[in-house]
Simulated assay, not measured.
Amino acid sequence: MSRALICGSLAFDSIMVFEDEFYNHILPDQIHKLNISFLVPSLKKELGGVAGNIAYNLHLLGGKPVPMGMVGQDFDPYREKFDGLGISLEAVKVKSDHYTPQAYITNDLSNNQITAFHPGAMNFSHDNHVGDYADISIGIVGPDGREGMIQHAREFAKNDIPFIFDPGQAMPLFDGEDLKQFIEQATWMAVNDYEFELVCDRTGWDGDEIAKHLEALFVTRGSKGSDIFANGESISIPVVTAEKIVEPTGCGDAYRAGLLYGLMNDLDLTTTGRIASLMGSLKIASPGPQNHHFTVEEFKQHFVKEFGYDYD
């Protein structure tokens, strides 16, 4: 089976809950000399990062993911999990004098967030090269170090490997000309609706112009589902109602894993979007980005129940 090279971060997420509202403890007229601490009785540590999350979800679907990223001296717990799952780590390189990327997220009772992110070894993502790995039929360039994202997109194009461009949280790193270059190199692009507006604003291109440079443009819209723009037409993909809503962290990555699976298996765009939508629904019912579980057969049964046909 061909493999998907997933370029992006592998990270540890420390998620804390402050059992009050931030605004009760921050004086607006004293922001200029802010010095405050929050007691956070609840703390959980999760495996995360876009490359790790997408790889985990593609594995659940029965695909062959190859996450590609730079990690640090503290990566062993992540390695242990992925080794146990049989997910290849051949494209994950260790910088022994740095830490694996870390996100420290504090939520209050209104779901406001204060986040600090330490990129660590991710700053060296350009030390990894697309051409070093065999049997790759598709790729994705997700949020990563700026130089690495530019290099990996160029290498996918040079090696004639179709890929998804997913700027995500890395959007602030790129101006309009950078984004135009990515779009012209990419085969597909996946963004949420806010990121889509940013891309339009920075490039000066509207959605029709962006779609002209791609085989398909995927725009997610949260609870409103997603839209696919291709060949001058649009396809509306409804959201799949979740069994329960627990935590949205990682839903976008689950969706992108569904896209990769459909595209690398030559499924039509409607079916591909529906697989992606169902993946997001199954993820949101579990806490953290990598704690949901199902077999390939269970997923297929979910799909048939939701859409009335088998995608195989």
Rank of each mutant, 00 (worst) to 15 (best):
S2R: 15
I6R: 02
A11S: 10
E21C: 13
Y23R: 09
N24D: 11
H25Y: 14
L27V: 03
L27W: 03
D29C: 13
L34D: 09
N35F: 05
V40S: 01
K44D: 14
G49H: 12
G52Y: 10
G52I: 06
K64G: 11
K64A: 09
P67A: 02
P67K: 04
F82M: 02
S88F: 08
V92I: 06
K93F: 13
K93L: 05
D97A: 09
D108F: 10
N111Y: 13
N112M: 05
N112E: 12
Q113A: 07
I114A: 08
T115A: 12
A121E: 02
F124V: 05
F124W: 13
S125H: 01
S125G: 13
D132G: 10
Y133Q: 09
G145R: 01
E147Q: 12
G148H: 07
G148Y: 14
Q151Y: 00
K158V: 03
K158E: 15
I164M: 02
I164H: 00
P167S: 06
D178C: 00
A186C: 13
A190W: 13
N192A: 09
D193V: 02
E195H: 10
E197S: 07
E197G: 15
V199T: 07
D201M: 12
R202C: 04
G204P: 15
D208P: 00
K212H: 12
K212S: 08
L214P: 02
I228P: 15
I237L: 08
K244I: 02
I245Y: 15
P248W: 14
N265K: 13
G273N: 14
G280R: 10
L282Y: 11
L282W: 06
E297I: 10
E298N: 06
Q301D: 09
Y309K: 01
Y311F: 15
